[in-house]
Design a protein around this nucleic acid. Structure first.
Lengths: 228, 228
DNA sequence: ACAATCGGTTACCCAATTGTGACGAGCGCG
DNA sequence: CGCGCTCGTCACAATTGGGTAACCGATTGT
């Protein structure tokens, strides 16, 4: 969780080693790939938090990898190249890359850029165990407990609660909840779905659903779990 | 709301104009400054969503501005310099800059980098906590407090207050308030709506609504919250 | 096969919010 | 000073938005 996973892709093994070493000594977990196809496989397989991606790759070039990654994920991408042409930089950024670093570069610089981007990406991954007051959620087991007592939740109820807990202190719109707990961008009856799901979740977790303490409503905005 | 505000800082007015123009044509709202002190004032005053910051500045240099901004805000910073030394790049990134662009650069590239960083920042626009004197607004929680006491505001009341607070010291026309608190460009009874909403808000927040201290009227112009 | 569970959909309820309009007070200009 | 304009005040009615719970088809478990 606190150890972000970085996918490093370059057809030169020595370059991969240099980068991997620099990032590993900074505490990152490294996955490597040496061509574009391998990169795409690794993305699907390992779900990295960030990709350091050389442009000149065999099989599928770096731009194409970037395009596909951007198309189906929100994983940040740093492009690497030996060239300095502005057109390439612009093309990479237009494909959705988050940064563009020209070789040669100092490993330290790359590390700092990785850091900056991860910082901006937020937590990157959901923490395994989340505590909010006496509420505890285990995101690997899909189990929640309240003051030590297990809660009997359905999958969607758990995910809804987990989303609120992970964002304790913030108000989340029904759209955001739909997206994060249902993985749905938009749904015709989505608002009513969330409303009903919240009602059901409250029946299960609130000591007094008429005076909720864990899931509060912000009228016209959404729902929130107070931070503790 | 959806129009991100960029602070552009460079002691060369022509450079500021070039950057401002490129970003304005991309739909961003631009605030400018020509030295480091002005930049810091603008940050406090305008609460930009991102800062494009030249390193070589009179009064307070770009690194120092970056350090202070990073110290007290989460506003993303792009540093600009004519130099290409890696040490400078690394220093900037270590100070917490989000990106580093060397002159000369194509405006298009800068725009894309601004975009990438704003994308990574999430909503970008909304500052989390705003203080004006003893008034505090938490834009993530939709909660406002006055001298520590919570205010019971409706959504539009909160947004109206947030708009005034975010622009403390400036007079906002009823049109501007309509736009920012209601997301409406024009409305037939808009003036009366704002008038009523202001009245209601005053009833809720002013110790003595007959002698308002937080929301003042500027006759024929609009309303303002004095800066503190 | 049957029962239980899940969850999207729908209908209803009601408190809160909000837009509107009327009226009077205060302001500023000629 | 008179007058027109602007702003503050407040009541009313309509709408909004969230809570509640039932319905029913699909799925799962026994």
């Amino acid at each position: 969780m606190d150890k972000a996973r970085i996918l490093v892709v370059d057809d030169e093994p020595q370059m991969v080693d240099i980068i991997a070493f620099a990032l590993e000594t900074e505490g990152f977990e490294i996955v490597t790939a040496y061509d574009g196809q391998q990169a795409l496989d690794s993305v699907a397989r390992h779900l990295p938090d960030l990709i350091v991606l050389d442009v000149m790759l065999p099989k599928v070039d770096g731009f194409e990898v970037c395009r596909r990654v951007r198309e189906s994920t929100t994983i940040p991408v740093i492009l690497l190249t030996a060239k300095k042409e502005d057109e390439d930089i612009i093309q990479g950024l237009e494909l959705g890359a988050d940064d563009y670093v020209t070789k040669p570069f100092k490993p330290r610089e790359l590390v700092l850029r990785v850091r900056a981007i991860l910082r901006r990406s937020g937590v990157g991954k959901m923490q395994t165990i989340v505590h909010v007051g006496d509420l505890q959620l285990d995101n690997l087991r899909y189990q929640a407990t309240l003051a030590g007592a297990p809660l009997d939740l359905t999958v969607h109820e758990f995910r809804l609660l987990a989303c609120l807990a992970a964002n304790a202190g913030r108000v989340l719109s029904w759209q955001a909840l739909l997206k994060h707990a249902w993985d749905v961008e938009s749904w015709e009856g989505g608002k009513e779905m969330i409303k009903t799901a919240i009602y059901r979740l409250r029946q299960k977790i609130e000591p007094d659903p008429d005076a909720p303490r864990y899931i509060l409503t912000v009228r016209s905005v959404g729902y929130t779990m107070p931070a503790r």
